[in-house]
C-alpha cells in the first residue's frame, strides 16, 4: 500500500473516532448543564471545559489533514487532558475500591483517545517522507 493511501485511510478512521468522541463530549456538556441546574453550588468550570473540548474535537475533525500541524496539536492537547484525568481516576479507583473504573469509562477515556493519538501520529509519519521530498525539491 502506498504511503498516501495509508495516510488517507488513517485520517478517514481518525475522523470517525473524533466524531464519536466529539459527540460524547457534547453529551457530557449537556449532562453537566443539567447537573449544574439540579445541584445548587455545582461547579461551572467543568461545563465550560467540556464544551470547549467538544468544540475543539469537532473543529479538529473537520480540519484534520496530514499537513495541518496545529490541528494535530489541538487533538493531542485534548486527548492528553482526557488521558491525564483518566490516569487520576484510575489511580483513585484502584486506591479506594481495588478495581478499575467501569468498562465504558475505559473505552471512552482511554481506548478512544489512545486510538486517536495513534492514528493521527501514523498519518503524520506516513506523510512525513512526502513532505520532506517536496522540501528538498523546493530548495534544489
Amino acid at each position: 500500500m502506498d504511503t498516501r493511501r495509508a495516510a488517507d485511510d488513517y485520517l478517514d478512521l481518525a475522523r470517525v473516532l473524533l466524531l464519536l468522541q466529539g459527540s460524547i463530549f457534547v453529551a457530557t456538556t449537556i449532562e453537566s448543564l443539567i447537573w449544574g441546574i439540579a445541584f445548587a453550588g455545582a461547579a461551572a468550570a467543568p461545563l465550560l471545559l467540556s464544551g470547549w473540548a467538544a468544540a475543539a474535537i469537532l473543529v479538529a475533525r473537520a480540519r484534520l489533514r496530514a499537513d495541518r500541524r496545529w490541528t494535530r496539536r489541538l487533538v493531542y492537547g485534548v486527548e492528553g487532558f482526557t488521558l491525564a484525568f483518566f490516569a487520576l481516576d484510575l489511580a483513585l479507583a484502584i486506591a479506594l475500591t481495588g478495581t478499575p473504573p467501569p468498562a465504558v469509562a475505559v473505552l471512552t477515556r482511554f481506548v478512544l483517545p489512545v486510538s486517536v493519538i495513534f492514528l493521527v501520529r501514523q498519518t503524520a509519519r506516513a506523510t512525513a517522507p512526502v513532505a520532506r521530498g517536496f522540501a528538498v525539491e523546493g530548495t534544489s
Binding site: E31, A45, L49, S50, D89, P102, L107
Partner: peptide, 10 residues
C-alpha cells in the same frame, strides 16, 4: 458514556 465533565475526577 463513562465520562465526568472535563476537569472533574470520578
Amino acid at each position: 458514556l463513562g465520562m465526568c465533565p472535563l476537569g472533574a475526577i470520578d
